[in-house]
Design a protein around this nucleic acid. Structure first.
Lengths: 246, 246
DNA sequence: CGGAGTGTTGACTGAACTCAACCTAAGTGG
DNA sequence: CCACTTAGGTTGAGTTCAGTCAACACTCCG
């Protein structure tokens, strides 16, 4: 920021300096000169409508996307023709990390709601600059966290029954939403039952049954996609293998 | 390499320049000056006996370990007290990546056989040097590949039956072993049935039954831990959901 | 009002788990 | 060298949880 001019940015409202969501972002703690560098290279604020794809499997890998607003999901189609939901993403999450080392995208990622994202081009990561080093180091930590949450998912698949899986799913989603600044104690599911089932390795009907069960037992109130009064403690207890209450 | 001296190294045989496994290593394609830097900082060739731990859960994260020789496994103990095998590692693999962004180790990692590893201290990764940039970039790709294989494991857990899981397990292990230079068509399992079960989300007895089934159907010959004449094509077909032959 | 998409509930079935018995190989010690 | 022990692996029988198939309910929208 050279000179003694007003602090208010002359740039338009979508640049990194004035972005209200910078604390959630990869660029969160870059210093001013690096942020200037970063800001000039990142493609800011692309908008998507529900059902639109951010990228599709096999498409050349052009970079990673930081979610500013909206909800997204990714899925994977296997050789055998099966498909599986591989993740749900909320504001602050990064799309495309799984394809970093690849030539092309591994997953297809779609908007579940209207949403906006910023693209960090892959070229920024592999070049030899201070900004690049700061980014790669930050991304290592991001990816390590992804590996961790994958581990937990694998654990849940390998050892948990249906009640535990759904308890884990809601517990994790609620926790992430709260951390990202959403209201505590209630949330709206942005995805279908069949997609939750695909993600957690359960049939659609089983997901539905478990939600009904939790509702009847007072662990949460659910009506279609609206969840209210969820009890994180009980969910956590169930996820850890505790018996269902009553 | 300054001057016109003999090419043979004056260093001892355990340094990076003379290491026969460098092509498998993180340092694989560092240029000479960076490799010198790297070589001086890496702690070479620690030895472990079967059952010894390389690191344990909760221990401060000191760095990542490159496997030169031997086989290792990692496991995770959950809040609820359950434990689960989280990975099997062969020469060329890296131990500890899941803890990169953390203060302390997430998994415990043990030697399954006698083995040797090199430690890359965490400090090397977070500093601001050319070597560090080269390493972080290479590690991003490594971690992206881990995320990919986790995805496949999650898929297998979510959608595959016992035959498919074991076929996948053997297919992947055999492929990795072949790529790491082991003899094709036969392999020795270095782990117990119960650990394979824990890893793949199956009971020990189910693992045993599936091995017997595969043996009877001629997909492989197995005697305790020795597998011979495995048929990668058939395994792949089963993994993709094909019916069992005959 | 009718139709489509999504979610719920019921009845039946089957694959994998649990529990138990048994087998085999590799020590170990007298 | 053989008897005994132990850990790991195999096989069998009964049970159970979640999948499948089917019918129905609710909501939205033209």
């Amino acid at each position: 920021m050279s000179g003694g001019f007003a602090v208010l940015p002359t740039r338009n409202a979508s640049d990194c300096f004035s972005c209200g969501r910078r604390s959630l972002c990869l660029a969160g703690d870059l210093n001013d000169s690096r942020l200037t560098d970063y800001d000039e290279r990142v493609q800011q604020t692309q908008t998507f409508q529900p059902g639109e794809s951010v990228f599709t499997m096999g498409q050349p890998f052009e970079g990673i996307y930081l979610i500013k607003t909206g909800f997204f999901e990714s899925y994977w189609v296997t050789e055998g023709g099966g498909s599986k939901v591989t993740g749900f993403y909320i504001p602050g999450d990064i799309l495309g990390l799984e394809s970093l080392g690849q030539e092309s995208h591994i997953y297809t990622t779609e908007a579940l709601t209207a949403g906006t994202v910023c693209l960090v081009p892959v070229s920024m990561l592999w070049e030899n600059t201070e900004t690049s080093l700061a980014l790669t180091q930050k991304m290592l930590k991001f990816m390590s966290r992804i590996i961790l949450s994958d581990t937990e998912l694998i654990y849940s698949m390998a050892t948990m029954n249906a009640n535990q899986r759904i308890a884990t799913f809601i517990f994790n989603l609620a926790t992430r939403m709260e951390r990202a600044g959403f209201r505590k104690g209630e949330l709206t599911l942005q995805m279908q039952r069949v997609d939750i089932g695909s993600y957690m390795g359960l049939a659609e009907e089983t997901v539905s049954r478990v939600f009904s069960r939790f509702n009847d037992l007072g662990i949460l109130s659910i009506n279609r996609r609206n969840i209210q009064h969820y009890d994180l403690d009980k969910l956590h207890e169930i996820a850890c293998g505790g018996d269902l209450p009553q």
